[in-house]
Design a binder for these strands. Structure first.
Lengths: 146, 146
DNA sequence: AAAAATTATATTGTGCACAATATAATTTCA
DNA sequence: TGAAATTATATTGTGCACAATATAATTTTT
């Protein structure tokens, strides 16, 4: 068989596997906050942005489309993490805003990045190297994607 | 805000994003073979192993559980890519075997790894470096996982 | 050999992820 | 201004991904 078709040769299979494994590492930590990983990403985006974001802004930030975000955001609204409201200025867009509760649980998430970093077992240098390798890859495939 | 909670600091978000982007790069190539990416991985595993595999062997190889594999394999059986049959030796286990058609389309998949490699825009050296970085990470988190 | 524990797969239910499509509002421009 | 194009979100349908549970067969233990 052609070597290239072998699973353990493939960069993409590694990324796919690690992505799933990472998710499993996050799950028990996020369970305490009643969040899934994609929901956690929405919270990160909103905490960082500090103001309301539209659905499409969230979609651009997280690279997710409305088919994913609409039901996800509704579930988060049901948990009183955020509110959804039509913008007055442009009624096509929906403004996503953190509730007091949503802002408040940020303090309970503070410890998560360091905990994950420890689970990776990487040195800061190894982490930086891996990150820039992935950034290079992402930059390359983003240009060929469209 | 703590730097660590920023999205663009996070290794995991990069991996999550790249995993999705990769999937989108594969989709049009695999569409010609009527395969999804996880189905393609099943085919790679079976092409490489050359003999029948049980569901649990596939699960170990691809790191997927029966809740994912059972319906996926049924869909692939419906497409006449493989057959599912209870093992005679141990009736708990189900033997997954490629059909002639399943073996035959391997030739149509041969070009895919090289095509993907080109899309990454990485040199062989960069690819190797990234792969070993990911292997290190995977080895580390696999030990802490259980 | 019978009971208990283990193993292998399947089913159910929830939550992404995304293509395709629909709906409605806004913008552009003839 | 009014039609056409664009923009923003939502809905529908399909396919993972996985936890929790169920079912059935095999192995181990007593």
């Amino acid at each position: 068989m052609s070597d290239l078709l072998k699973l353990d040769q493939q960069l993409c299979f590694r990324i796919y596997s690690i992505s799933k494994t990472m998710n499993r590492l996050y799950a028990p930590l996020l369970k305490k906050l009643q969040l899934t990983y994609p929901q956690y990403l929405v919270m990160l985006a909103l905490w960082e942005h500090k103001e309301a974001m539209t659905v499409s802004q969230l979609g651009q930030t997280l690279d997710l489309d409305s088919g994913t975000l609409s039901p996800l955001l509704k579930r988060m609204e049901n948990q009183s993490l955020l509110t959804r409201s039509r913008s007055l200025a442009d009624e096509r867009s929906v403004k996503i805003e953190l509730t007091a509760h949503g802002k408040n649980i940020k303090k309970d998430a503070k410890h998560i990045p360091a905990k994950l970093f420890n689970l990776t077992g990487l040195s800061h240098q190894e982490m930086k190297a891996l990150r820039s390798g992935l950034d290079l890859l992402m930059a390359n495939i983003k240009t060929t994607e469209g």
